[in-house]
Amino acid sequence: MIAAIGLLAATVVLGFAAPHWLGLLAAPHRHPRVALAAWLTSQALFVGAVAAVPLVLWVRPGDRWHLLPSSTLSCVSSLRQNGTVPWFLAVEATLWAVGLLLVGRIALVVSRGLLRHRRVTEEHASVLRLVGRRNSTDGDVFHVVGPGVAAYSIGGRSPAIVLGTGVMDLEPPAREAILAHERAHLRGRHHLLVAWADALSAAVPVVPLARVGATWVRVLVELSADRQAAASCGPSAVCAALERWHDEPRDSRPAAMSAAGFVEDRVVWLSGQCASRRGAQVLHYPLALTLSALPVLATVSVVVTALAAYCAMLGS
């Protein structure tokens, strides 16, 4: 019971407070993958904590593995059995029911969203192979006839990059930057990450971590792909491609690139970026995991300690 309340408090902190500090991680001097990994890890921890609440109530790890002092365990057992606190069993039953319902909703909506993403991606790939012209040198690049500088990628089991007619008129450095940007999306499985964030937002739209996180994930995958393209082609080539795309009429921009409409901010971001040292890049994911897990561990520890002290006080 004590562990379940601690986990419930951690879900509240993650779901409603985490966006305030996660949003501060996005800065030009820091690689976007740190913020991206932190958002995704926090969302995964949120779902894991929600799922752990009914599991902990069922397993009762404090009783089974003696994780708490014996005095606290005997106090909790007496509260549960003797009815010293009348609402004790009602709280347990409520947490159990709410946890199971929320986990079921998340599992159902997220699985449906990911399956829908997979189906749409496969249909898009099938149509692309009918109407597109495959590049003779790059087998995963297709050219389609259309106005403007259109470029996007599709993931799935048969990943591909789609280039419009206008891309071929760009300078070679800008054209290579566009290809590098789209290949970064494919390598990082950014399409799947965006689909996950959108599905989680649809499952629990009242939770800011999911609702705001869906927007942040879309932004950060673009910034991360820009950063990787700049590392191989240079920031000037990426900025030139962005500015050329921004000059196109809005009607000629494909719907698939609507998430990248913050072109001016991306140019400013690339202009202010700092080169990451090789040693620092190794710490990106551990740093993101630490920033996501530390609030959970701190919240659970504080709540469990406070409830254990309160229970001991009642017992005495």
Rank of each mutant, 00 (worst) to 15 (best):
M257N: 10
E171N: 12
L25M: 07
S232T: 15
L102C: 14
T290W: 14
M257H: 07
H20A: 13
V212C: 06
C274I: 13
C233H: 04
A10R: 06
W96V: 00
E182W: 06
R157H: 07
W96N: 00
V162C: 10
R116C: 05
P295Q: 10
F142W: 12
L25W: 04
E123D: 06
C311M: 13
A3I: 08
V141S: 07
A180Q: 09
R189C: 01
G83R: 08
V303W: 06
P295F: 13
T41Y: 02
A49N: 11
A309P: 00
T299W: 08
A151I: 04
G62M: 11
G261T: 07
T84P: 01
A35K: 02
A293P: 05
A312F: 05
W21Y: 15
V34G: 02
H117Y: 14
A203W: 09
P172E: 03
T94Y: 03
R187K: 10
V110L: 13
R119L: 13
S316P: 14
A203M: 05
A210D: 00
W39V: 05
L297A: 15
V302K: 07
A280L: 09
L114R: 08
G261P: 03
I2W: 05
A306G: 06
A259Y: 07
W269P: 00
I154D: 05
